[in-house]
């Protein structure tokens, strides 16, 4: 067994940065886009569970093999994909070279990256995330400052958190988290 904290830091360091490539891989190999977040989560959960037993030496290969097996199982179970399609399923994306420049570019330019992600949040949500992260205001101060209720501020923040995670990792449009559920998160900015 591996220490939980160790698995967590490995997961954040080695696995999460692959999200961009993993999501693209899932998209290319599965016809319905709305299943992607569920698949991705299942890949993460399996990879994390395996990491708790033993940290895989090559995170990238492990993540994509897991993703591939998952897609094959689902395709078989759903019987919506012909066997040829399954057989055609892309091999694990080629290693390192493809990813390294991306990774470096992200690290090199993290601030710009975060700013661009924030810029794509809805206006009100963006404002509240900036008050929290740039000005370091507490949730209460933000509520007082904007005249919103504390609950609404928190709803905007949860939405911001989800949006940032999608955009910073994927670099693409997120599924609008506010429309799924979440009290108060539906109210868009003024």
């Amino acid at each position: 067994m591996v220490e939980r904290s160790e698995v967590k830091s490995w997961f954040c360091r080695e696995v999460l940065p692959l999200e961009h490539v993993l999501t693209a891989f899932l998209r290319r190999n599965w016809r319905t886009g709305e299943d992607i977040p569920d698949f991705r989560q299942e890949v993460y959960a399996r990879v994390f569970a395996a990491g708790c037993q033993e940290l895989p030496r090559n995170a990238r290969a492990f993540v994509f093999t897991t993703a591939r097996n998952l897609l094959i199982n689902h395709a078989r179970r759903a019987a919506i994909v012909s066997f040829e399609l399954v057989a055609d399923l892309e091999e694990v994306p080629a290693p390192a070279e493809e990813l390294t420049p991306e990774r470096h570019a992200v690290a090199r330019d993290e601030l710009r990256h975060v700013r661009a992600a924030v810029a794509r949040l809805p206006a009100r949500c963006q404002e509240i995330v900036m008050l929290r992260k740039v000005e370091g205001m507490s949730h209460r101060d933000i509520a007082a400052h904007t005249g919103l209720s504390l609950k609404t501020v928190e709803a905007h923040l949860t939405r911001g958190m989800r949006g940032l995670a999608d955009m910073m990792r994927e670099g693409s449009e997120p599924a609008d988290p506010g429309t799924v559920h979440g009290a108060g998160a539906r109210s868009r900015g003024a």
């Binding site: 999460l16 601030l111 975060v114 995330v129 900036m130 940032l164």
Partner: peptide, 11 residues
């Protein structure tokens, strides 16, 4: 992890 990364905005 994304929310922490957004701490960079403090700059």
């Amino acid at each position: 992890s994304a929310w922490r990364a957004a701490d960079r905005l403090a700059a």
